[in-house]
Amino acid sequence: MTMSRPTMALLLAVLAGLFTFPFYGGEFYVEMMAEMMILGIFAMSLDLLIGFTGLISFGHAAFFGFAGYMLAIVTPESEPIAIWWALPVCLAAVAVAALVIGWFSVRTSGIYFIMITLAFAQMMYYYFNENQDLGGSDGKFISWDPMVAIGDWQLLDLSDLTTLYYVCFGSLIFVYLLLTVMLNAPFGQVIRGIRANENRTRALGFATFRYKLVSFVIAGTLAGFAGFLEAVRTDFANPAYLGWHESGLVMMFVILGGMGTLYGPALGALILGLLKSEMQDYIERVNLVMGFFVIAVVLFLPHGVAGLVERLGRPKATDDGEAAP
């Protein structure tokens, strides 16, 4: 992935801002930024599918919400669960769900894939929405944050806001680096090949079904990781997190930020999240504005913010001998 110099500068500025934020941000905004970073992880995981593999999943929120429910299920009423248990179990459950759904969905393509992923996500949504043991449509309260400790020695207190903030910040960077390494590895070249031309990739001898399925499972599991963090942050598993409004929202992050760039979708989550929460104070019908905003982005900014930044950066790139657009 090549990144122009202004983009790099912008990203470093954002990172520096995020790193120092808890020192001056104030509790309300620190909490909010933690959420935005979680959504950033969620958006990057979807970018792996949309922007790199060419699979337009419209049911990605299913994994996000499912991980939250898994945490609610494994956390006992009376005491916290060790994160060394909780996280692997939740992620494994999400990965299995992604494997099953992916196994059905990935054999289809285009519009079928969109509709099938949506239908499976709705199926999971209805399951949790109607399951009274898990609180039905009210969702389920998670009584304890997972414990990060070795023996009796507590490493991190996840109920502390600043700690949680830095956990989210570290996770965001970790997931970004993980995906970058993966995408630069041969695996990444193959899935990009699938996006560009699946038949040709298959003709080259790659079992494209398997590559797409693996990509789907990784993306689902990372979405589950984001969902796990969100459940830790809110202490709550909510059926709405599995719903298609959430899937549409994360897709919106990806497009607004610029698909196929990884950092773009995370930026998209940040921008849209801030916009939405700022508007909430002034406007009663936020979704109305959001709707028009979505349409405007589709019509006028199809390559997203990342595309815009890259375009602004391009004239400078000619100095380095690259052709002007």
Binding site: M251, I255, G291, I295, L299
Partner: peptide, 23 residues
């Protein structure tokens, strides 16, 4: 345009129409 944009734009339409209905 790609299906992706169709999905997004019509998703935006749903948000607007649902809010209009509530209003």
């Amino acid at each position: 345009r790609d299906h992706l944009y169709q999905v997004l734009l019509t998703y935006g339409l749903i948000l607007i129409l649902n809010e209009a209905q509530l209003e």
